[in-house]
Design a binder for these strands. Sequence first.
DNA 1: CGAGATTCATGTGAAGTATACCTTTAGGCTTAA
DNA 2: AAGCCTAAAGGTATACTTCACATGAATCTCGTA
Length: 418
Amino acid sequence: MVKLNKLFDSFIGNSLFKDKFVLQANYSPETIPHRDEQIEQIARILAPALRGERTSNLFCYGKTGTGKTLSVQYVRNIMLKRKELLEKNDSKKETNREHELKNLRIKYINCKLKKVADTEYRILAELIRKLGSKVPVTGLPTDYVYSKFIDTIDEKKQFLILIFDEIDQTVKKMSDNLLYNLTRLNSELSNAQISIVGISNDLTFLDNIDPRVRSSLGEEEVVFPPYNALQLQNILKNRASKAFKKGVISDGVISKCAAFAAREHGDARRALDLLRVSGELAERQQDKKIQLKHIDFANDKIERDKILDIIETEPKQFQFVLLAIIKLNELKKRNKEGIEIFTGEIYTTYQNLCQRTGTDVLTPRRVSDILAEFDMLGLINARVISKGRQGRTRAIRLAIPIHLLDKSKKILYESLNL
DNA sequence: CGAGATTCATGTGAAGTATACCTTTAGGCTTAA
DNA sequence: AAGCCTAAAGGTATACTTCACATGAATCTCGTA
């Protein structure tokens, strides 16, 4: 008892953090350094909405962690605040501006969230839900959901800006139907008007979609270049001063975090994670300061958590397939065979695994799709090759780092009751 | 020896099926007049 | 008669299966030099 109390005491007393939330992914700072230009562009494009006019559709490109989502959200918040303010004033003065502004709504949707917004239907449903109506998870015809959506927004005069984060994910998986329909929706609306803001990590995204959608969606484009190491340092310093107590950061920590992240195409989120996890690690080890060694550990830990999290949350059947791949990978390594694994081998191993545990066995067709999804997730690297007389197959290479294999296997075994 | 046919093992698309879930509708029961 | 509840009917999205056809280079075949 006493021991525990002591432990807790030291924990509370010795916290290195002043406000950890500042380093978390969903924190939005008051200022966004090095993105003035982009923010101004976005604001200028969306500004007409404040006058109740339709804005151009907007498309934002940039690699992960270049501040796309943040910037868009930032502009959104300011606009919403502004709207509130104007409303208050207007209702006092009773100018005619009021009704125009009251009906500006900006909704944000992240299309990557599995089981929430990763199909046409689910995105629409989520959208309707955010607008205040109810829609069942399944069972309705998609057209019906469309008309429900139209009804919901068209019942009064209003102006709607829809932000779709990471749309490339969805469109890659599904079709560009949704976008096509949405861009054409305005002609069916009598009261309301919508504009679309798309955010994409994939720079080539617009190249591969229906030209009609492209021209309408890409009316305006904003590009987010990666941060360089210097800018990253600046960002980190800013946040660190708010997040940590004074003097807990050793020299060079910030620049090392920045350097790490700069190597990863200037990913600021990565840099911030690195700093936060380093802090957590230092704290756990009861260190008074964050040191360089903590960053290295943090780097491993982040990588590990990301992958292990994916593995853990994958559906059972996917896990079986993955386990089959890992096992084959081990086997091949032990026998010093090539590192490439083929679909057929995976399927037989997978089959054995299932039979041993009494699980239903999926068809090769389905497993093929599952493998394709793993490829998208980055868990494996696959390419379709022809081995001549030995037919065609995927040549698969496991992309999980070696030092995570054991841990991954453990998770899979546990999750599958093996 | 080399061009063209063959072949293998799987990729891939389309259509079908099972499941879980939704709305609508019709019938039965209750209630109030 | 009007109102309410329930269960069946009819419909959908999603995850998966079934069927059928496409692929593409190593290998085979066979005519030719």
